[in-house]
Design a protein around this nucleic acid. Structure first.
Lengths: 363, 363
DNA sequence: CTGAAAGCGCTTACAG
DNA sequence: CTGAAAGCGCTTACAG
């Protein structure tokens, strides 16, 4: 059985005995129509089972009522929640959401943007792979496509952004460990693609960088916060305590954590810079059968479901993830609606959620 | 600065000095063109920065190269992974994915389907709220829209489905507990909306139901497996051990688990019927400070990241979640491409992942 | 292989 | 308030 023939506005108009223009006005809810004509058209539409074709409408109006999202990886609690926030706002406003994944790959990101542009989305929410302002995003924005960056942002792109205060919250978390008396605190973080010289150099200069300037990748910002806290306490940073995983992989994080935890001068605390790093860290801790917090204190950036009932409950940094998505969508819809004010860079606060995984180091 | 004026095929044709039909043929990659004309057109397109408008193309071809997804809740590891599977296949085949959430609400599901239809998706992947074949899905399918059901399925809908062997894997898991010597095994499950009479009656008759017949909601199927295993071992089912949460909420699951675990004749094992129930269960166990597996053995349906490194590591049922999504997308694309064979109901195997959270009951 | 014409299903000025 | 006509940006027969 073939698809039932689609009913068009023309057929409804014929059935109702009016012109297509008039039928369009009542069905599309624009222009003026008298009540009785409207009723006739609606009756005809119902009778025939008319469904509007938004492709045709979009073609003429130039508005698709659709927003495009380029997530890094939807199979990740962070993006899943962001997308929830985006979806909630979009639904409330009658917008559709087209989803793509970049997998942190610039070519895929380009392809994704290209796909979304061809589908004529009204605007884009993107977690850019490259935070130094890739040319394709620049030309996208120059071309007038409303764009909101999430999670990370290139500040020299003329586009809004919604991010989290990575540096400040990491600083707070590490401060919490320092206050508890820890002096050998390891950090395990992605730290991929450094373009400002060596890691050692970065550490030496991190405290002097402006938050929104030299480095805009979350894991580097979190390392900045780690350095800031040490500086506040006059504790020198031991580069040997920086577990630079190099990729966004829990297995790689597990390896890096294992190396750190087996070193002769073992750290007494470990700070995992995001959810994926946390998973790797937890695996390493389980493999080595370390007791928390007796042998090791831990704090995780990114509050995952299980962290609150693991025993001991894990101290975390709680990001307003749903809000990232909903705010990005709201900003984008405002731009689509014609807001042309200067780009806004929204930095949301994250909250330290103190729980039992931190104790003073064993003397 | 307004959006840069969009370049159309007409302008490219003019620039190249050919007709729009010819320009369309090379740009749209259909029909025949000579190499030198193709080169001229491509040069003109590149020079002007031509981007195809897929809305116009879809309007005339009747194909949008887009699939619609109605997930229950993207902010849920299960759907996030399913969507990953869908997205991977879609990207490989050049399809876009429009995402909506139903939140298990029939009205939202209808709205979502409506939105997707207006955007003229070529097909739909849906986790139906109501498994008894809602009228709106029935008419959708009768209208010829290719549709694949996931996670649960109405078998009297003429649409493919991809689900998991819930009953069989639950039976295997509970058998594992029975073999370990447990005789008081509680189950905590959603079990919403029963239409076959009372819970007691269901339990009495569950073993006689065909797997794919009377009940098609995952949590009920998992309860069936629980009953099956008891029957296999000649162990009567105590309805007092069935924690019927009534909604898909971890807080509610926590409450139900707490009640079960505080009862005078406490179960020695607890089977959580999905990820959300597992989270509630774990919270209850933490609150009551029970030792696993000394005081309680547990098995979770749904393998979440953390279950493997929690100590003790938790025995789980591992569902091929990504595969659910990719298979659903492949099936759908085949239908879109014209496969008109009878609907297929694919039931994927889930695998018991034995880990340390099960031990014999304390005597 | 190429072009002139028609048309996909709507909306938008423009008359009336 | 309503209708005839044109047009959104493409693709599709149909001639040549």
């Amino acid at each position: 059985m073939p698809a039932s023939p689609r009913i068009t506005i023309t057929q409804v108009a014929a059935e109702a005995g009016v012109s297509t223009a008039t039928a369009g006005r009542v069905l599309g809810n624009y222009g003026y129509t008298s009540d009785d004509v409207a009723a006739k058209v609606q009756a005809a539409a119902r009778k025939l089972g008319y469904k509007p074709n938004s492709l045709a409408r979009s073609l003429v109006t130039g508005k698709s009522h659709t927003i495009g999202v380029v997530a890094a990886d939807i199979d990740n609690a962070f993006y899943a929640r962001v997308l929830r926030g985006i979806g909630d706002v979009a639904r409330a406003r009658g917008f559709g959401v087209i989803l793509t994944n970049s997998d942190e790959d610039l070519e895929r990101e380009k392809d994704a943007v290209q796909l979304l542009l061809e589908k004529r989305v009204d605007g884009l929410i993107v977690a850019p792979c490259d935070v130094r302002g890739s040319a394709h995003l620049r030309s996208l924005i120059a071309g007038g496509c409303p764009t909101v960056q999430i999670d990370r942002a290139s500040y020299d792109l003329a586009a809004d952004s919604v991010t989290v205060d990575n540096r400040g919250s990491a600083r707070e978390a590490v401060t919490h460990l320092l206050k508890a008396g820890h002096r050998r605190i390891a950090i395990i973080a992605e730290l991929e693609e450094l373009h400002n010289g060596s890691l050692e150099e970065f550490v030496r200069q991190a405290a002097h960088f402006s938050t929104n300037g030299e480095t805009l990748y979350p894991s580097w910002q979190r390392l900045q916060g780690y350095v800031d806290a040490h500086r506040d306490f006059g504790v020198p940073v031991d580069p040997g305590l920086i577990g630079r995983v190099g990729s966004y992989s829990s297995d790689a994080a597990c390896q890096a954590a294992t190396v750190l935890l087996q070193s002769p001068d073992r750290p007494t605390a470990l700070f995992a810079a995001d959810g994926t790093m946390s998973i790797g860290m937890m695996q390493a801790i389980a493999d080595l059968d370390l007791q928390i917090p007796e042998q090791l204190s831990i704090i995780c950036f990114d509050d995952l479901d299980w962290m609150k009932f693991t025993r001991p409950a894990i101290t975390t940094i709680h990001q307003p993830v749903h809000r990232i998505g909903s705010m990005a969508a709201e900003l984008l819809l405002a731009r689509i609606a014609g807001d042309t004010s200067v780009p806004k860079h929204n930095v949301l606060e994250a909250r330290l959620q103190v729980r039992d995984s931190v104790a003073p180091p064993r003397s």
